[in-house]
Computed example of a mutant assay.
Amino acid sequence: MAFAFLIVDDDPDVLKAATMALAGPGAEVIVAGSPDGIEALAAGRDAVLLDMNFALGARSGEEGMDGLARLKVADPELAVVLMTTFGGVGLAVAALKCGAEDFILKPWRNDALEAAMAKAGQATRARRAEAGFTLDEIERRAIIRALSASGGNMTRAASLLGLTRPALYRRLERHGL
Rank of each mutant, 00 (worst) to 15 (best):
C98H: 09
R125E: 10
L147K: 10
P35A: 08
L161G: 01
R125L: 15
L91R: 06
A95I: 00
P25E: 15
P12D: 12
G121I: 04
L15T: 05
A123V: 07
G26C: 11
P35D: 06
T19A: 15
R70M: 03
T84V: 08
I138P: 01
K16R: 14
S148Y: 07
A142R: 03
G61Q: 07
A58P: 01
A4N: 10
L82G: 05
Q122G: 14
D75Q: 09
A131T: 14
L68W: 06
L6T: 01
A4L: 00
P12F: 07
A42Q: 00
V93F: 00
E139K: 10
S34D: 13
G44C: 03
L177I: 14
R165E: 14
E39M: 00
W108A: 08
G152R: 06
A17V: 11
S150T: 02
I7P: 03
M20V: 13
L78I: 08
K72Q: 13
S150F: 09
T19S: 15
K97T: 07
A2V: 12
I144V: 13
W108K: 10
A116L: 01
T155I: 13
F54I: 04
L135T: 13
G64F: 00
F54E: 04
A131D: 12
A112E: 14
G37K: 10
D36Y: 11
R145P: 01
R156D: 15
L135Q: 14
P107Y: 12
K106D: 10
R170A: 15
G88S: 12
G87S: 07
L15G: 04
I104K: 05
L71G: 07
A131R: 15
I104H: 04
E39T: 05
L113W: 09
G99N: 04
N153Y: 12
K72I: 08
R165W: 02
R45E: 00
E28V: 14
L163S: 04
D136G: 14
L71S: 04
E130M: 09
A129M: 11
L68I: 06
L160P: 02
V81L: 06
K16E: 13
D111H: 12
A142I: 06
D9K: 08
I7K: 04
D66Q: 07
A27L: 05
L71N: 00
G64Y: 00
M52Y: 03
G87Q: 01
T84C: 09
I144S: 12
D102G: 01
A146H: 08
L82R: 02
